[in-house]
Amino acid sequence: MQSVVLQTVIKLLLPFIQVYGLYIIFHGHISPGGGFAGGAVMAASFVLFAMSYGVGEGFKRLPRLIAQWLESLGGLIYIALGLTGILRGAAFLTNVPEWLGQAGQLFSAGLIPLLTTAIGLKVCSTIVTLLYHLLEEGHYDSQTD
Protein backbone atom coordinates (compact mmCIF):
# COMPACT_ATOMS: atom_id res chain seq x y z
CA MET A 1 0.00 0.00 0.00
CA GLN A 2 2.43 2.67 -1.21
CA SER A 3 0.35 5.73 -1.97
CA VAL A 4 1.76 9.25 -2.08
CA VAL A 5 -1.34 10.74 -0.49
CA LEU A 6 -1.22 8.34 2.42
CA GLN A 7 2.50 8.77 2.92
CA THR A 8 2.30 12.55 2.88
CA VAL A 9 -0.62 12.64 5.31
CA ILE A 10 1.18 10.28 7.67
CA LYS A 11 4.36 12.34 7.41
CA LEU A 12 2.41 15.45 8.44
CA LEU A 13 0.48 13.71 11.19
CA LEU A 14 3.33 11.82 12.84
CA PRO A 15 4.81 14.62 14.98
CA PHE A 16 1.38 15.57 16.28
CA ILE A 17 0.52 11.99 17.19
CA GLN A 18 3.81 11.50 18.97
CA VAL A 19 3.64 14.76 20.89
CA TYR A 20 0.09 13.90 21.93
CA GLY A 21 1.22 10.44 23.05
CA LEU A 22 4.03 11.94 25.13
CA TYR A 23 1.58 14.47 26.57
CA ILE A 24 -0.77 11.70 27.71
CA ILE A 25 2.12 9.77 29.25
CA PHE A 26 3.64 12.71 31.11
CA HIS A 27 0.31 14.01 32.35
CA GLY A 28 -0.80 10.58 33.53
CA HIS A 29 -0.70 11.60 37.19
CA ILE A 30 -2.80 14.74 36.88
CA SER A 31 -5.29 14.04 34.10
CA PRO A 32 -7.04 11.05 32.51
CA GLY A 33 -4.72 8.81 30.54
CA GLY A 34 -1.35 7.55 31.61
CA GLY A 35 1.20 5.02 30.54
CA PHE A 36 -1.05 2.58 28.74
CA ALA A 37 -3.13 5.10 26.79
CA GLY A 38 -0.13 7.26 25.90
CA GLY A 39 1.98 4.27 24.98
CA ALA A 40 -0.75 3.02 22.67
CA VAL A 41 -0.95 6.42 20.96
CA MET A 42 2.82 6.48 20.54
CA ALA A 43 2.71 2.98 19.14
CA ALA A 44 -0.03 4.05 16.72
CA SER A 45 2.42 6.51 15.16
CA PHE A 46 4.99 3.79 14.48
CA VAL A 47 2.28 1.43 13.29
CA LEU A 48 0.90 4.00 10.83
CA PHE A 49 4.39 4.69 9.54
CA ALA A 50 5.19 1.01 9.04
CA MET A 51 1.87 0.42 7.32
CA SER A 52 2.15 3.30 4.88
CA TYR A 53 5.88 3.09 4.10
CA GLY A 54 6.29 -0.68 4.42
CA VAL A 55 7.74 -2.74 7.25
CA GLY A 56 11.29 -2.33 5.96
CA GLU A 57 11.17 1.44 6.46
CA GLY A 58 9.55 0.88 9.86
CA PHE A 59 12.46 -1.33 10.92
CA LYS A 60 14.87 1.43 9.98
CA ARG A 61 13.10 3.93 12.23
CA LEU A 62 12.50 1.64 15.20
CA PRO A 63 14.62 -1.50 14.80
CA ARG A 64 13.44 -4.73 16.35
CA LEU A 65 16.45 -4.83 18.64
CA ILE A 66 15.66 -1.45 20.15
CA ALA A 67 11.98 -2.35 20.51
CA GLN A 68 12.99 -5.49 22.39
CA TRP A 69 15.31 -3.55 24.71
CA LEU A 70 12.66 -0.92 25.41
CA GLU A 71 10.10 -3.61 26.13
CA SER A 72 12.22 -5.33 28.74
CA LEU A 73 13.61 -2.11 30.17
CA GLY A 74 10.14 -0.64 30.66
CA GLY A 75 9.16 -3.53 32.90
CA LEU A 76 12.51 -3.63 34.67
CA ILE A 77 12.40 0.10 35.43
CA TYR A 78 8.95 -0.36 36.94
CA ILE A 79 10.19 -3.16 39.21
CA ALA A 80 13.31 -1.14 40.13
CA LEU A 81 11.13 1.86 41.08
CA GLY A 82 8.99 -0.47 43.17
CA LEU A 83 12.07 -1.77 44.94
CA THR A 84 13.14 1.75 45.93
CA GLY A 85 10.18 1.68 48.30
CA ILE A 86 11.60 -1.36 50.05
CA LEU A 87 15.09 0.16 50.13
CA ARG A 88 13.70 3.18 51.96
CA GLY A 89 12.17 0.89 54.56
CA ALA A 90 8.54 1.16 53.44
CA ALA A 91 6.33 -1.19 51.42
CA PHE A 92 6.88 -2.11 47.77
CA LEU A 93 6.03 0.79 45.40
CA THR A 94 5.70 3.33 48.22
CA ASN A 95 5.92 6.89 46.94
CA VAL A 96 8.59 9.35 48.05
CA PRO A 97 6.79 11.83 50.33
CA GLU A 98 9.37 14.62 49.73
CA TRP A 99 8.78 14.53 45.99
CA LEU A 100 5.01 14.75 46.13
CA GLY A 101 4.96 18.49 45.42
CA GLN A 102 1.76 20.35 44.79
CA ALA A 103 -1.20 18.45 43.40
CA GLY A 104 -2.03 19.44 39.82
CA GLN A 105 1.52 20.52 38.94
CA LEU A 106 3.36 18.70 36.15
CA PHE A 107 6.33 17.98 38.42
CA SER A 108 4.53 16.37 41.32
CA ALA A 109 3.29 13.03 42.60
CA GLY A 110 6.76 11.60 43.27
CA LEU A 111 7.34 8.29 41.56
CA ILE A 112 4.06 8.19 39.64
CA PRO A 113 5.24 10.09 36.50
CA LEU A 114 8.31 7.86 36.37
CA LEU A 115 6.10 4.78 36.62
CA THR A 116 3.79 5.98 33.84
CA THR A 117 6.83 6.69 31.67
CA ALA A 118 8.07 3.13 32.22
CA ILE A 119 4.62 1.77 31.36
CA GLY A 120 4.48 3.99 28.28
CA LEU A 121 7.81 2.66 27.03
CA LYS A 122 6.70 -0.92 27.60
CA VAL A 123 3.27 -0.58 26.01
CA CYS A 124 4.56 1.32 23.00
CA SER A 125 7.34 -1.15 22.21
CA THR A 126 5.10 -4.15 22.87
CA ILE A 127 2.41 -2.98 20.46
CA VAL A 128 5.02 -2.15 17.81
CA THR A 129 6.64 -5.57 18.20
CA LEU A 130 3.26 -7.28 17.99
CA LEU A 131 2.48 -5.41 14.80
CA TYR A 132 5.86 -6.21 13.25
CA HIS A 133 5.07 -9.87 13.82
CA LEU A 134 1.68 -9.52 12.16
CA LEU A 135 2.98 -7.52 9.20
CA GLU A 136 5.69 -10.06 8.51
CA GLU A 137 3.19 -12.92 8.60
CA GLY A 138 5.79 -15.36 9.84
CA HIS A 139 8.47 -14.64 7.21
CA TYR A 140 10.81 -13.51 9.93
CA ASP A 141 13.29 -16.18 10.96
CA SER A 142 13.88 -16.02 14.67
CA GLN A 143 17.16 -17.92 14.46
CA THR A 144 18.96 -15.41 12.23
CA ASP A 145 18.10 -12.32 14.21
Binding site: Q68, W69, S72, L76, I79, F92
Partner: peptide, 12 residues
Protein backbone atom coordinates in the same frame (compact mmCIF):
# COMPACT_ATOMS: atom_id res chain seq x y z
CA UNK B 1 9.32 -9.16 41.56
CA UNK B 2 12.20 -11.60 41.15
CA UNK B 3 10.31 -13.78 38.70
CA UNK B 4 8.96 -10.81 36.75
CA UNK B 5 12.42 -9.28 36.51
CA UNK B 6 13.85 -12.62 35.36
CA UNK B 7 11.11 -12.97 32.75
CA UNK B 8 11.80 -9.48 31.40
CA UNK B 9 15.56 -9.71 31.62
CA UNK B 10 15.97 -13.09 29.93
CA UNK B 11 15.22 -11.93 26.36
CA UNK B 12 17.98 -9.34 26.73
Amino acid sequence: ALYLAAALGLPL
